[in-house]
Design a binder for these strands. Structure first.
Lengths: 211, 211
DNA sequence: TAAGATACTGACCGACCGGTCGGTCAGAAA
DNA sequence: TTTCTGACCGACCGGTCGGTCAGTATCTTA
């Protein structure tokens, strides 16, 4: 029986159901607002059974985040290619980063919650920071390459450019619903347009001036 | 007895102490993670006394947010002036917006939590959205003026520019601690420098090209 | 088929939650 | 002095929380 050979060993169907239910609930309502009873009911198992498979509520949460993280980076890494103008690569990265967030919004919310979230809640921060950090480092590298090639302004801090780009995406993702209420904003439901406008401004700001 | 005549009527010292304690705890740990007992202890009153002054935990939270909101917009409105180049006005706004957030980080976190926060938690959203929206509208107006004056590119959506600027600030504010861990980032503790670099890129991206 | 591991359950625990209750007490009004 | 009021308190309510446990069903293996 040939398996994709991904996850650590394997997952019983029950465990998978628990993880799925927990992921859904945690990312929609947060850690505190979800009880083990909720998860048990949603997964169709007894609460005690969850404690049979996971040491504690914290451990379950950690497993959920770990599960979610594993996919996240891969998706973006696949999209990397060395050829083509840097501006195109940046636009690709930005567009896909935002698209990924929106498509997997539950997972994104979950990871974001860890990174941005409460002060006292250091549950899976390290884990989430790693994912986040990998994306960030990848982006910084693209910018550096662009600077070496003379396509981008050399006087900029590449980490600043990366922060700006990722920040713009994250902010859009997390305040989508609020932006919708603002009369001046008409792009809140059009992420592709947002991405295009973002890159329009950003590229104009970081492109090396013509000699 | 001449009073500053600000706040609704006035506040007994006890109520003020409760509000202060609640604000501190709510903004540091969030709504769910704070119990009325915590607040009572921090304020040095009995829990029952809190319920004497506030109808419910929700009502207390609402009062805290209302209290926090009232100052927030004023601070930025005072900084507006009609004269001077738009680029300077934008830089001022951005710099002060970030500085305000950082200086009043508890209040900021509280309001941000309402705007960005959990899905099920619509406690004081309207209230917070109003504050947020006012800042946003103010900024859009500045950008529009710049476009009319020909200082800024006319082909840009002013709301997009505002989103980018506020988003950059919000993202910096909320991920400060994470950014600190990234080896490529050396500006996480220097908001002024961040603001300068931000405006450097942004202005280059939105300034009207010379004729 | 017997034995033993593993998956799973319902009943249950102490802690703590938001909120209420009966009552005390200082001071203003009469 | 008496009456009334509102701030304030300790004790307590029903309910939910994360977590435990004794026991049953199911599967594996010899």
């Amino acid at each position: 029986m040939p398996q994709p050979a991904a996850q650590p060993p394997q997952q019983s169907e029950t465990v998978a159901r628990i993880l799925a239910a927990a992921e859904e609930l945690f990312s929609r309502r947060g850690f505190d607002a979800v009880s083990m009873n909720d998860i048990a009911e949603a997964a169709g198992v007894s609460k005690a059974n969850i404690f049979h498979h996971f040491e504690s509520k914290n451990a379950l949460y950690l497993a959920v985040v770990r599960n979610a993280c594993s996919d996240s980076v891969e998706r973006l890494q696949q999209l990397q290619h060395e050829d083509g103008a840097i501006s195109g690569q940046l636009a690709d990265f930005a567009g896909n980063h935002l698209k990924n967030m929106l498509e997997h919004d539950q997972v994104s919310r979950l990871i974001l919650r860890e990174i941005v979230g409460e002060e006292g809640a250091r549950r899976a921060q390290e884990l989430a920071e790693k994912v986040f950090g990998q994306n960030f480092a990848m982006l910084v590298e693209i910018v550096r390459t662009g600077q070496r090639r003379g396509e981008l302004r050399a006087d900029l801090d590449p980490a600043m450019v990366a922060t700006l780009l990722i920040g713009a995406n994250v902010f859009f993702f997390e305040s989508q619903e609020v932006l919708r209420h603002f009369k001046d904003v008409d792009f809140a439901r059009e992420p592709e347009r947002y991405s295009r406008m973002l890159m329009d401004i950003l590229l104009a700001g970081i492109r090396a001036p013509k000699p």
